[in-house]
Design a protein around this nucleic acid. Structure first.
Ligand SMILES: [Mn+2]
Ligand SMILES: [Mn+2]
Ligand SMILES: [Zn+2]
Ligand SMILES: [Zn+2]
Lengths: 140, 140
DNA sequence: ATACAAAGTTGTAATGATTACAATATAATA
DNA sequence: TATTATATTGTAATCATTACAACTTTGTAT
């Protein structure tokens, strides 16, 4: 919605990242699936469109895009990295029942502590865990 | 400092967790090493005192203690779980240069969002990444 | 348009943390 | 002390991620 393939191409160029079909498709997938997919989900789904796609490419692409600040890696569980094309500060809620990850606004500025006065902060993360309304309803 | 082995024994009993030498040692190690050690660090160091220790035991022990709320698993990087005996809410700062993890006070209550009104929140996490003062100084 | 060099992609194999499981040992209880 | 449930151990399996070398594509200069 917010981005067209052309927008992605321009942004990649502006960041001196070479344009490739695979990179554009990964960006397109993330912009159309804001559910914070895993590498495997991205790979499996893109495979339908790009039968020659390699999982290594998905890893390296996401790594490059993350380095460039175009996507953000989400570490909530230790056994999976998820990716988010929304790089603006916000919190994540992971439902322990259905596994869904929800976004919520989080005021990161409020978290600043005088204890960190001498630190250079590059990245801020907030995540909660619990049960989502849908799963709470299903239990009754 | 805060806990003696006896305190741990009492707390385990109160939670109906069986008392074992290994569990007490893991708790003792965490209370004496608040640097958020990895499973492997805990294992390697306890091996000196308990030559028969198995890494599987360290995993299962930490899992049981985490389920009981006596320790907290810290997921910052995707390739390592760290453990913290401080279970009260606080934030973590990971230095990307030296790898050290620092504690800082974080007002989690402020993060509550009306978006989460129907959610049951069980666990809140805040972590930052960047460079610590020591590493910043060393760069000059 | 063509050619070249740098960078990206692919497939496969290696790595490394975590888990599964069956045999053995220990802890709690009577 | 005997019994039973649970914990520990060692080994093998799992599975996400990374390393690497051959091949392909992209960006750029001719
Ligand atoms: Mn998000
Ligand atoms: Mn801590
Ligand atoms: Zn749910
Ligand atoms: Zn540092």
């Amino acid at each position: 919605m917010k981005f067209t393939p052309d927008d992605f191409a321009k942004e990649l160029k502006s960041k001196n990242i070479r344009l490739s079909h695979q990179r554009l498709k990964v960006l397109e997938y993330l912009s159309e699936h804001k559910c914070h997919p895993t590498v495997d989900q991205i790979y499996t789904n893109l495979l339908k469109e790009i039968p020659t796609l390699s999982k290594t490419t998905v890893y390296s692409t996401l790594g490059a895009l993350a380095d460039a600040g175009m996507v953000k890696a989400i570490n909530i569980e230790d056994n999976e990295i998820r990716y988010d094309i929304t790089v603006e500060d916000h919190g994540h809620f992971k439902c322990e029942s259905c596994g869904a990850i929800y976004d919520f606004p989080a005021d990161m500025a409020h978290l600043e502590s005088e204890v960190l006065s001498g630190f250079k902060i590059r990245d801020k993360n907030v995540y909660f865990k619990g049960t989502c309304p849908m799963c709470l309803a299903n239990k009754n």
